[in-house]
């Protein structure tokens, strides 16, 4: 039964992160996603200290707020502080992460927060924390949290599909027809923060980043159709989850790490297919040219 829950949680995380990641990599904001995934740490710790529990609602809200703050800080440093964008991303997330580590280690005595766990998660333990409602076992809590995030993200994309699409591919046009580019930017970043936090507890920061970037990048190489890219992302991500789980079980090693490795392999396969297609395309082109020349 544990296998089932872990794979289910993994697939839910892969779908949620992958959907949002598709937008991130097309907007050239992959590293902002990375920054948010690291920077929510102080939010989690502070929310944890205030609410004194691992109760997920304050934790989600606190970390989501810090996630938005991260985006805001990066933009402010870049626009008002005149700092180049790569440096402002690096500066923001390292300092917030440092703050989080200090807070976490300062209160490590009172607080049941494990730093390693935050980095690479304990998906293996996720099925053990179950949700009880009125004495009825509702299954692992993580399934509900990540599942909730997935439903939120799905409805966000469903309701705002057009706006997200236009602001991603042609922000100038979006501004002309009166779609607020910055509103959708912050909504998207808010969704990324929420997802990060929801996924954090079970899979850790690094797997969140891998799920945000690797499956969309692979899908991006395989199709030119955005809707297909979204579907493929979810599929490839899930594939890596299943592969990673059994690899980790076989090696007796970190599940998150093995899933990240599988995601790398999935990307390599996509890259190979992409290069092959390019090769064939260019070859048939030269064949045609030769034929045309007679």
């Amino acid at each position: 039964m544990n296998d089932f829950w872990i794979i289910l949680i993994g697939v839910l995380v892969a779908a949620t992160c992958g959907l949002l990641g598709s937008y991130l990599i097309l907007r050239r904001m992959a590293m902002v996603g990375d920054a948010i995934a690291h920077a929510v740490l102080p939010g989690i710790v502070i929310a944890f200290m205030i609410s004194e529990s691992r109760d997920s609602i304050p934790m989600l809200l606190g970390a989501a707020a810090v996630g938005l703050l991260t985006t805001f800080l990066i933009e402010t440093l870049h626009r008002r502080g005149m700092l180049q964008i790569d440096a402002s991303i690096g500066l923001t997330y390292t300092s917030l992460f440092a703050l989080g580590v200090i807070l976490a280690s300062a209160f490590a005595g009172d607080v049941d927060l494990d730093l390693d766990c935050i980095l690479y998660g304990e998906i293996a333990l996720a099925p053990l924390y179950t949700l009880d409602i009125g004495g009825v076992d509702m299954g692992p809590r993580a399934v509900w949290i990540v599942g909730g995030a997935l439903i939120l993200v799905l409805s966000f994309i469903f309701l705002g599909y057009k706006e997200l699409y236009i602001t991603t591919f042609d922000p100038a046009y979006a501004a002309i027809i009166g779609v607020s580019v910055s509103l959708w930017h912050y909504l998207l970043m808010g969704a990324v923060s929420l997802t990060t936090v929801a996924a954090f507890e079970s899979v850790g920061a690094i797997l969140v980043v891998a799920f945000l970037i690797a499956p969309p990048a692979a899908a991006y190489l395989l199709t030119d159709n955005f809707k297909h890219m979204l579907l493929l992302t979810v599929l490839l991500g899930s594939l890596a989850v299943v592969g990673g789980y059994y690899l980790a079980a076989w090696l007796d090693a970190s599940i998150a790490g093995a899933m990240a490795l599988c995601m790398g392999l999935v990307f390599c396969a996509a890259f190979g297919l992409y290069r092959r297609r390019l090769h064939i395309a260019s070859k048939s082109l030269t064949d045609q040219q030769l034929a045309a020349r007679g």
Binding site: I25, M29, A217, L221
Partner: peptide, 26 residues
């Protein structure tokens, strides 16, 4: 490929780190 540099950085970073964690737990 048509992958942008920032995506490539994020990809390599997270996959390598994941492999590192895998080995560390091993």
């Amino acid at each position: 490929s048509r992958i942008k540099e920032d995506t490539a950085i994020g990809l390599v970073l997270s996959v390598f780190f994941g492999i590192g964690i895998l080995l560390l737990t091993l």
